[in-house]
Design a protein around this nucleic acid. Structure first.
Lengths: 254, 254
DNA sequence: CCTTGACCCTGACGTTACGTCAGGGGTTAG
DNA sequence: CTAACCCCTGACGTAACGTCAGGGTCAAGG
C-alpha cells in the first residue's frame, strides 16, 4: 500500500513534475513501483519529503539536501533544531522588511527622503547564508573522513592518564603559540608548533587532513563556544590561530 | 554624481551580475553612463531597486515586477500596503512551519507517528499564490484594455452636466437592480439592466468586454472599498451584483 | 466489450534568474 | 609606469523545475 504521485503531490502541495524530478536526481525515490511502472510512495517516503521541504524552505540546494539526508549519521532531531533556528532568522528578516515597508510608507506620507543605507538593511541575506554555511560545514567537520562514531569509540577507551597527558600537550601547544602572537601567523616557530598540533590530533583522534585542519581553524572563529575558550589563552588568540592554520595549510598544498 | 555598480551592489546586498541582468532586461536601467561606459545609478534608481527587492521578496517574477513598476498608474503607497499584507502572510506561513517543526520534534521524542496531512499543512503556498494572483488581476482590471490615463483624459473633459447625467443613470441602474435582489441573479429584468450598465460603461469610459465586465464584478467583492460603497444600495448588494454579472457574461459567451 | 475520463509513464526542449569565465579596457595611488 | 581595483561586453553554464508530445493503464458506465 502506498500513495500515487498525485496523492503525494496534493498532500505536500508540490507538482507531480517536482516528484519526477526528485526521483530523477535520486533525492526521493519511491520505495516501490506497480507492474505498470507507477510510482508508489510509502509513509517513510512522505517523511523524507517533509524533510526535503523543510530544507528547501531554508533555500538549501537540492544536492546539499540529498547529501544531508543520505548521510547515515544524519541526526533528524539535531537537524530539526538547527532548522528552527534558521527559520527564526528568516522570520526575523521578514519582520525587518515589514518594518522597512512601514518606514517607507511613513517617509512617503511625510515626503521625507529615506536614508540610503537604511533602505536596504532589511534585505541582507548574509546572516542566513552564513548560518547555512556554518551548518553544512559543521556537518562536514563532524563526519570528517572517519565517522564521529569511530572517533568517540577511540577516545572513550583512553585511560585517564593518557587523557591527562594529551590535554597537557594540548595546553602546552596553545601556550607556546599564544606567547608568539606578536610575531604574526607566519612565524616559523608558530608554524612548527602547528605541525605538532596536527600530529597530536592525528595520533589521538582522527587523520587530520589539511582540509579538516583548515576547517577546524574556521570553526574556532565561527563558533563562539570555541572562540571564548581559546581566547582565554590571550586576546584575539582564536583569530590568530585560524590565520596561522590557514598559512600552514596553504604551505602544505604547494 | 551617482553610484557605481559595486557601490549599489554592496548597498543592496545583490551581485553586480544581478544589476547587469536587470539592466539587460530593462528592469533597472541606470539613469546615466560615464564616458567610459560605466553605469551610474541615481537615488531614484536606488528607490526603484528597493521596490524591485520588495516584490522579489514576495516571489514575483521579474517581468511582472517590471510591468507593475512601469505602469504609469502604479501607486507606490497602495502597492506597499499590499506588500505588507503579503509579507505578513509569508511570515505566518513561516510561523506555521516552525510550529510543525516543533510538533515533529515532539512526535520524534515520543516515538509517535505524525498525522500525514498535518505533516504538510504548513508548507502550502496556495494562500500566498492566490493573493498574488489577486494582486496582478486587480492591476489588470484597474487598467483594463486602455490605460487609465486615457480614461481619465476622456472623463476629465466631460462637462459637469454630462457627468451629472451619467451618475444619474448609474444610480438609477443600481437602484433598479437593488429592488430586484429577491428575484435572484438570473432575473431577466436584472440581466436586462446589466446590459444597460455595460453599455453605459462602454459609451462613456472604455470598451467594456465581457472579460472586463466579469473582472469588474469580482472587484466589487474583493475590494472592500467598492463593497462598502455598493452595499449602501442594500445588504449584500455587492455579492449579488457580482453573481448577476457572472451569469450575464456566461450567457454572452455562448 | 468497449469507450471515456482520469490517471500514469518517459523523453526532451523551454524558462527564469542569475553564476561564472574569458578577453579587454579605465582610473588612481605610490 | 605599474599594480591594484575598478568597469565593460559577450557567451556559455546551472538549478529546479514547467510544459508539451506521444503513448500506456484502469475503473466506471452505456
Amino acid at each position: 500500500m502506498g500513495y500515487q504521485v498525485k496523492e503525494v503531490a496534493d498532500l505536500a502541495g508540490v507538482s507531480i513534475r517536482t516528484l519526477h524530478h526528485y526521483d530523477h536526481i535520486g533525492l526521493l525515490k519511491p520505495s516501490s513501483f506497480t507492474e505498470a511502472g507507477y510510482r508508489m510512495y510509502s509513509d517513510r517516503d512522505l517523511e523524507r519529503l517533509q524533510q526535503i521541504l523543510f530544507f528547501k524552505e531554508l533555500d538549501f540546494p537540492l544536492h546539499q539536501i540529498k547529501e544531508i539526508l543520505d548521510d547515515p549519521k544524519f541526526d533528524r532531531k539535531h537537524a530539526l533544531r538547527m532548522h528552527r533556528e534558521l527559520l527564526m532568522k528568516k522570520k526575523e528578516r521578514l519582520e525587518r522588511i515589514i518594518e522597512t515597508v512601514d518606514q517607507t510608507i511613513q517617509s512617503m506620507e511625510g515626503g521625507i527622503p529615506m536614508d540610503k543605507k537604511k533602505m536596504f538593511t532589511s534585505f541582507s541575506m548574509k546572516e542566513i547564508e552564513e548560518h547555512q554555511k556554518k551548518y553544512s560545514e559543521e556537518a562536514k567537520r563532524r563526519y570528517g573522513k572517519e565517522r564521529v562514531e569511530d572517533v568517540e569509540k577511540k577516545t572513550s577507551r583512553y585511560s585517564e592518564e593518557k587523557w591527562a597527558a594529551i590535554m597537557g600537550r594540548w595546553k602546552d601547544i596553545y601556550e607556546r603559540i599564544a606567547a608568539r602572537m606578536d610575531r604574526g601567523p607566519e612565524d616559523p616557530e608558530v608554524q612548527q608548533t602547528l605541525e605538532e598540533y596536527r600530529q597530536l590530533i592525528t595520533d589521538n583522534f582522527y587523520e587530520c587532513t589539511p582540509e579538516i585542519f583548515r576547517g577546524l581553524g574556521d570553526l574556532y572563529v565561527q563558533d563562539e563556544r570555541f572562540t571564548r575558550n581559546i581566547d582565554r589563552y590571550g586576546e584575539g588568540m582564536a583569530r590568530f590561530l585560524r590565520d596561522a592554520m590557514h598559512v600552514y595549510c596553504d604551505r602544505i598544498n604547494r
